[in-house]
Write a protein that binds this DNA or RNA. Sequence first.
DNA 1: GCCGGGTCCGTGACGCAGTCACCGAAGCGG
DNA 2: CCGCTTCGGTGACTGCGTCACGGACCCGGC
Lengths: 228, 228
Amino acid sequence: MVSPGPDMTAADWIEHFPPLAALGQEHRDAVLASAHPVRLPAEMRVFDPGSPCSQFLLVVDGCVRVQMIADTGRELVLYRVRRGETCVLTTSCLFGGEVYPAEGIVETETRAVAIPLARFLALIAASEGFRRFVFAGFGQRLAALLATVQDTVFHNLDGRLARALIARAGGGPVALTHQALAAEIGTAREVVSRHLKQFEKAGLVRLARGRIEIADPDRLALRAARTE
Amino acid sequence: MVSPGPDMTAADWIEHFPPLAALGQEHRDAVLASAHPVRLPAEMRVFDPGSPCSQFLLVVDGCVRVQMIADTGRELVLYRVRRGETCVLTTSCLFGGEVYPAEGIVETETRAVAIPLARFLALIAASEGFRRFVFAGFGQRLAALLATVQDTVFHNLDGRLARALIARAGGGPVALTHQALAAEIGTAREVVSRHLKQFEKAGLVRLARGRIEIADPDRLALRAARTE
DNA sequence: GCCGGGTCCGTGACGCAGTCACCGAAGCGG
DNA sequence: CCGCTTCGGTGACTGCGTCACGGACCCGGC
């Protein structure tokens, strides 16, 4: 599933990865000795529900999307792992000896450093800096994850859709399908289509096949702020 | 918020708490030196959304319920912390320096050992056994938490209610209000009332004010198994 | 060109779930 | 016995998810 990239060594990557660069020479050497640099192409499935988890992953560059999938096919994006971040589920599964409860998909080509479990545990034991890095990121991502869950369970679609639109299309018109938005907020494609049509009628967005453009950012932000 | 119990010393409690008993003499002494035994009365709010988190908590005996609350008043029980367990949110907040994103309510009088952050970090650094205990429990609880979330987001009420009934009333008739069941599965009281009435008509349960009794465990279990 | 298949979107009908407003019934303390 | 509080029941309405289907667009091959 995971293979070394052809053009960079572990040392190259780690040198460009701030959290590890701050580790201190001794532990950096330890990581260098056992870490595998990996290159993950876009669209690749990094893990599925039920996959065992055997190595710690630091994302150096790129973006991995982590989502749950229902039997019916409905999806819900939990979070994304970006440059300098780690995956809370991976860490948790490593520690608990569990299998993944969700799936991970590479969104844009990703470079990462994989650290085998034994080496990871040794680093945790040896380096306070490494512990701090792992656990602080961990706590922050879990908090964000719970906020997502709370939003999905308790808040209505209008606001959730507006927030997802701003997150995905806030920087200008962007390729984005109704299905992708539906997965983002855990609902069905038809529902998103209907709401988007309302937004368009209200002059908030402009729609084209496979593209969405925010027409009135201020008023859309107003909708996004209402969390009922 | 948290005060020492009057009748037991930290040593007494730790001696009766298997995970700590397995720590080895040296680290047990370290815990003894800084841990506070606490006694939490039923109904007490241990923490609220926004509370800072400054100490690690091991539950020696009793039960603490952890739940999210929406602005509208709707609730969702995330998990319970029982004998020998720790709270995944507490651990996560400690590591990440976050505030609690949920609230904790004591269900039955609870005894616990509180370990201040500094001592907790020292133990994590020093003892592999303690690390294993903390992180293994941690991973398992996070997995269970995500399963709860998935259930709430993707599955219909019938099955969720049946499962909640079995979990709460499976051991015989029990004091249990519709409101409590609604909070358990993250819905509204009226909805639970209507479904329970259906269950009663179907001969699955017997209802009385403030009490619910399972009349036909086998057929109720069938409903609980259907996760659509 | 134009034809065919795949992806994306629109829509109506329907059923389940959440909300609101209100009421009655059961327990409990004075 | 009365009044208060908690608990449960109900109808009307809205929002959302599901199903079924069809049309629109895109991109390849011919």
